[in-house]
């Protein structure tokens, strides 16, 4: 999948550089605040795992909807798909992706898709990082 080929290769060479690792960790926190998500579900590890699995199996479809809506200039479609994504992402404390999805929901609502393609690209990148993070989380298959 594009996720692994793009991002694994970009992150791997940085492994030995301590300073960069700090930066990567900071970025990772923005990608997924796992502790915050765990707090939200009352510390229930099992529940969090189940939610990650539901998310992983369901988000590609939402991304496809969003992509198609952006490409066809369908504002309402953008608003709806971005809204669904935003809800799930914010619940999982995927900070970065949440804010992009929220911005895209606003674009859809306002009917202004002029920067929707750029946002979509940014969201796809962020989702790929999130996918990696969730996939690596203990107990998530």
């Amino acid at each position: 999948m594009f996720v692994h080929s793009t991002f694994s290769s970009r992150l791997d060479p940085l492994e030995n550089d301590a300073l960069t690792r700090v930066a990567t960790d900071a970025l990772a926190t923005e990608v997924w605040k796992r502790d915050e998500a765990l707090d939200r579900v009352g510390g229930d590890e099992n529940l969090l795992q189940e939610l990650c699995e539901i998310f992983l199996s369901g988000y590609p479809q939402l991304m496809t909807k969003l992509r198609e809506a952006v490409m066809s200039g369908d504002s309402l479609g953008v608003q709806q798909a971005a809204h669904s994504l935003k809800g799930e992402l914010s619940y999982l404390s995927a900070m970065q992706a949440t804010s992009i999805a929220r911005a895209m929901e606003d674009m859809g609502r306002e009917g202004n898709l002029s920067s929707a393609v750029a946002s979509l690209t940014a969201l796809e990148r962020s989702m790929a990082l999130l996918h990696l993070a969730l996939d690596k989380a203990p107990g998530v298959h």
Binding site: V41, D44, E50, L51, I54, S84, E88, L92
Partner: peptide
């Protein structure tokens, strides 16, 4: 709820 994540959270809790 149309979202499977929220349905699951609500139902489990």
């Amino acid at each position: 709820d149309d979202d499977p994540i929220f349905r699951h959270v609500l139902q489990s809790c």
